[in-house]
Nucleic acid binder design. Structure first.
Length: 466
RNA sequence: GCCUCAAUAGCUCAGUCGGUUAGAGCGACGGACUGUUAAUCCGCAGGUCGUAGGUUCGAAUCCUACUUGAGGCGCCA
């Protein structure tokens, strides 16, 4: 007898009268005194559950089947029939139902068949996957991840596994977690009382990566089109709906390219991902549209068929100065855009994802290419309504002298990044890249507002359970 | 890190001005009914009111500290 996933049963045209086996978890049980019970079974393969009809002539009807509660694990064998009821085209008339694992204490089982808040479900992250919401998120996350690889692979990019442990403390993207093999109770000291990292595993200070970009640039200047996709770590004590201490980031880097090429690539990638999700996860997206945010489907559909808006920082400042909307943070050329400014720009002024380019050099990273005006750098941020910054990137400074002087402005030691400067000495080319926060992207796609609900087991300040 | 708000049944919440035995919905359990699918109806059980102090004749309610959570800001993806 063939084993089927629920998805195969519901959507692969399994023939009526086929004898099948399906395994999963009971979502609900409803009894009819006519002598039958209805058990819906979900196995995570798709949003919908398959309905199983259990007649009271089954040998374990009284002893087992009438004791089935939400999330008891079951193995069903039976015949596929056209459904007599509404809500599904087919159902399974069971010949056997084996309850593999009952749920102890169904009265206090954390994921009872009722609405739960996402805040509560975070405390039971190991069980929350059995809800419609978190199951749908998990499937979309998978689709997004695979689509990203698919896009790059179809377009000639190589996937580069940039290191997780880094010795560079100059990446500048944020506070870093330390990596050490030292015994924290007996730290070796140098003569002047500082910690002697020469005795540590790597014989130097090391950290978890905050970005694979610098390493990725090295591969870019040999392989032309590269990307990395993996976990990233930031030790910032950020307490928001859009920050995590451990998150996944996609970074792309292209050679012989400028900022426009970069923006085009990012936009094309995002559209591909949106289209793929709409295509593969229509039922999950329908659920988000119904229960989370009415607009998640329509806004993705319209994005796929339109161009992202692009605006320079200077134009953005002009518009922010023109509007009658009052901001907490005063607007003038030279300020870093605050959340309220970004939100107004993409939500009110433009109304869709917006690429802001050419920021003042003073608050952007040292590696961004200085524009000819001497005041701005070739940076770009992609802002998404409801989320804020979803991607950030830049054309890189490819001129050795300019890069060195920028590093000096930032008070950075050349010694530390000598290898990075080498890339400008030996066959340097204009190149550009960007990073996309995977969780922010999923948050935007699904409408699930808190980033902690779109990653399986969130790590954030004071949060490392499970 | 800063600001604001919150913590009462398994979950979501109500609880008036500080006053007798702390309530509802959902869930669970029992029953009725039904090809049901967020079923419906009836019934029953379920509480050290986040923790520790304090004020008071009396505290879920007022005060202090702590813990945890949420939202906003900053940092950013």
């Amino acid at each position: 007898m063939k084993n089927f996933t629920v998805k195969e049963l519901l959507y692969s045209g399994v023939e009526i009268d086929s004898i099948v086996m399906v395994k999963g978890w009971a979502r609900s049980r409803r009894d009819s005194k006519a002598g039958i019970s209805f058990i819906t079974v979900n196995d995570g393969s798709c949003f919908d559950s398959v309905q199983v009809v259990a007649e009271n002539k089954l040998s374990n009807y009284e002893t087992d089947i009438l004791r089935i509660t939400k999330d008891c694990s079951v193995v069903i064998t039976g015949k596929v029939v056209k459904s007599l009821g509404k809500g599904q085209s087919i159902e399974i008339v069971a010949t056997t139902i084996e309850v593999v694992g009952f749920v102890e204490n169904p009265d206090t089982y954390p994921v009872s068949p009722k609405r739960h808040t996402v805040e509560y479900l975070r405390d039971v992250a190991h069980l929350r996957i059995r809800t419609n919401l978190l199951g749908a998120v998990a499937r979309v996350r998978n689709t997004v991840s695979f689509a990203i690889h698919e896009y790059f692979q179809k377009n000639g990019f190589s996937w580069i596994h940039t290191p997780i442990i880094t010795g560079s403390d100059a990446e500048g993207a944020g506070e870093m977690f330390r990596v050490t093999g030292l015994n924290l109770n007996h730290l070796p000291r140098t003569d002047d009382g500082k910690i002697d990292f020469k005795q540590d595993f790597f014989a130097k200070e090391t950290f978890l990566t905050v970005s694979g970009q610098l390493n990725l640039e090295a591969y870019c200047l040999a392989m032309s089109k590269v990307y990395s996709f993996g976990p990233t770590f930031r030790a910032e004590n950020s307490n928001t709906t859009r920050h995590l201490a451990e998150f996944w980031m996609v970074e792309a880097e292209i050679a012989f390219a400028n900022l426009t090429d970069n923006a085009t690539l990012a936009e094309d990638l995002l559209k591909y991902v949106f289209k793929t999700v709409l295509d593969k996860n229509a039922d999950d997206m329908k659920f988000f549209a119904e229960f989370i945010n009415k607009e998640v489907v329509t806004r993705l559909e319209s994005l796929v068929n339109s161009n992202f808006a692009m605006i320079t920082y200077s134009e953005a400042i002009n518009q922010l100065l023109k509007t009658k909307v009052k901001f907490e943070n005063p607007v003038s050329w030279g300020i870093d855009l605050a959340s309220e400014h970004e939100r107004w720009l993409c939500e009110e002024y433009v109304g869709q994802p917006t690429i802001v380019i050419d920021y003042p050099k003073d608050f952007k990273a040292f590696y961004m290419r200085l524009n000819d005006d001497g005041k701005t750098v070739a940076a770009m941020d992609i802002l998404a309504p409801g989320i804020g910054e979803i991607a950030g990137g830049a054309q890189r400074e490819d001129r050795y002298d300019v890069l060195v002087s920028r590093m000096n402005e930032f008070g950075m030691s050349q010694e530390q990044l000598d290898w990075y400067l080498d890339l400008r000495r030996f066959g340097s080319v204009p190149h550009a890249g960007f990073g996309i926060g995977l969780e922010r992207l999923i948050s935007y796609i699904t409408g699930v507002q808190n980033i902690r609900d779109v990653i399986p087991f969130p790590r954030a300040s004071k949060l490392a359970s499970f």
